[in-house]
Structure formats: structure tokens, C-alpha cells
């Protein structure tokens, strides 16, 4: 079993790069858009989380009005206050967590 699991993990680590939404209270349309935006940004700036976050924030500000806040990182903890229906917390690429919320 252990061996199997190990093998599986090795394979799966390579595999799992799809965006995985951990928590979101957004409307469907917004969620899909936000998710796609996060994916685009993280793929574009795969080496620089800061610019990726900047891009996400600015685009979201433009599309859905201010003020959006983004955290892109591999390991962090947070406690935030967000406006209802304006939060998405997702993983992407297997090692990046993105928290995107609105609080103006």
C-alpha cells in the first residue's frame, strides 16, 4: 500500500497543476472570471508572485471596482475581512495559493 501510495504521489505531483478552488463565495460568473485571471497571471509571471498579484489586483479593480486585495504565495497565513460574495481562495500550479478578496 505504502509503495503504491508513494508511486501515486510521484505521478500526481506532476499532474496536479490545475486551478483548485478551496473556498469561494462569489457568483459563478465572477468566480470563473477571477479564477481564469489568477491562472493567466500566475502563468504569465510564474517566477514573480508580486507582479502576478499586481496584475490580478489591477485587473480586478478595473473589472469589478475597487478595492481588491491579493495574496499570492507558497506559504502564508491570513485572517482577512472581506465583503460578502467577493472572496476566492484557490490553489494553482500545485504550489501557489492565491487569496483574492474585496474590501473597500
Amino acid at each position: 500500500m505504502a509503495e503504491e501510495g508513494g508511486e501515486k504521489k510521484v505521478v500526481e505531483v506532476v499532474k496536479h497543476t490545475y486551478p483548485l478552488i478551496r473556498h469561494s463565495d462569489m457568483q459563478d460568473e465572477m468566480r470563473v472570471e477571477a479564477m481564469e485571471l489568477c491562472v493567466t497571471a500566475c502563468e504569465k509571471f510564474s517566477t514573480n508572485n508580486e507582479t502576478a498579484a499586481k496584475m490580478i489586483k489591477e485587473t480586478m479593480d478595473k473589472k469589478f471596482g475597487p478595492s481588491w486585495h491579493v495574496v499570492v504565495g507558497e506559504g502564508y497565513g491570513f485572517e482577512i475581512t472581506h465583503e460578502v460574495k467577493n472572496l476566492i481562495y484557490m490553489f494553482f500550479g500545485g504550489n501557489v495559493a492565491i487569496t483574492l478578496w474585496k474590501c473597500s
Partner: peptide
């Protein structure tokens, strides 16, 4: 004011890994 909620979580590499495993 628009209704607000608090949300908190901790992210780390193993958390992400576990989440992917579960989802898969």
C-alpha cells in the same frame, strides 16, 4: 456598509498538496 465576513486560513506546501490529493 456592505456586509463583510472574516475569513482566515493557513497555506503551506503540504496544505496545497493535501488539497490536490483530496480533490483528485
Amino acid at each position: 456598509p456592505p456586509p463583510r465576513l472574516n475569513f482566515s486560513a493557513n497555506v503551506s506546501q503540504w496544505e496545497i498538496f493535501d488539497a490536490y490529493q483530496e480533490d483528485f
